[in-house]
């Protein structure tokens, strides 16, 4: 019994060491590719948000895109929102946040994104996954038929988890980078 325990501990230590080793070995080119993959997921999220928010999107398509957006996120991810007038964080689940976005009571909604984006370093966390934060800025414009307009700019700090995974496809072992989004901090920005 104790031998098995020792063996298990040894295997565990080895797997920890090897995972730390393999993480340390990621070349700059590979890191760049992972960064750009993470950025692509953020762009996808931006597009999905624009589609869900747009009043021209058919209901069924918006619902489908909500499902697709949820697939980008890790389970239990939350959106933490604060405004200029209310600086403490309000927490929402991703689905209620997106459904709220779809149901906004404007006749026209236009969501666009600033060109600017900021990518943090990817940091290794104790479970062997990498975590990073990508910051983007969103323009929101809602118009009612009576001509009233609401505009704001929000900063979105989006958690990105990157994990090396393997799967078997057609008899081949495929090594892939699983990029999942996590918690999102939404801050209203002063003009």
């Amino acid at each position: 019994m104790s031998k098995i325990k020792i063996l298990l501990v040894a295997v565990f230590c080895f797997s920890l060491a090897s995972s730390a080793f393999s993480q340390a070995q990621i070349s700059p080119e590979r890191k760049r590719a992972i960064d750009s993959l993470a950025i692509e997921k953020i762009r996808d999220l931006s597009k999905y948000i624009s589609i869900i928010g747009s009043k021209e999107t058919p209901f069924s398509e918006a619902n489908r895109v909500i499902e697709r957006t949820l697939e980008l996120f890790a389970d239990d991810s939350q959106i933490g929102v604060s405004s200029l007038h209310r600086t403490e964080i309000q927490y929402y689940g991703v689905r209620p946040y997106l459904e709220h976005l779809m149901a906004l009571n404007y006749d026209r909604v236009n969501i666009s994104w600033y060109n600017i984006q900021y990518i943090s370093d990817l940091e290794l966390q104790p479970d062997g996954r990498y975590v990073g934060v990508i910051t983007i800025y969103q323009r929101f414009e809602g118009q009612s038929d009576d001509g009233l307009t609401y505009k704001d700019t929000t900063k979105k700090d989006i958690t990105v988890y990157v994990e090396r995974k393997h799967t078997q496809i057609g008899g081949k072992l495929i090594g892939f980078w699983d990029v999942l989004l996590g918690d999102v901090r939404v801050t209203e920005t002063t003009k």
């Binding site: 200029l84 600033y114 323009r139 414009e141 009233l148 307009t149 505009k151 700019t153 209203e188 920005t189």
Partner: peptide, 12 residues
């Protein structure tokens, strides 16, 4: 905010 004013907080 919509009904009370034209609310513009875009960062141009």
């Amino acid at each position: 905010s919509v009904y009370s004013q034209y609310f513009d907080n875009f960062v141009e």
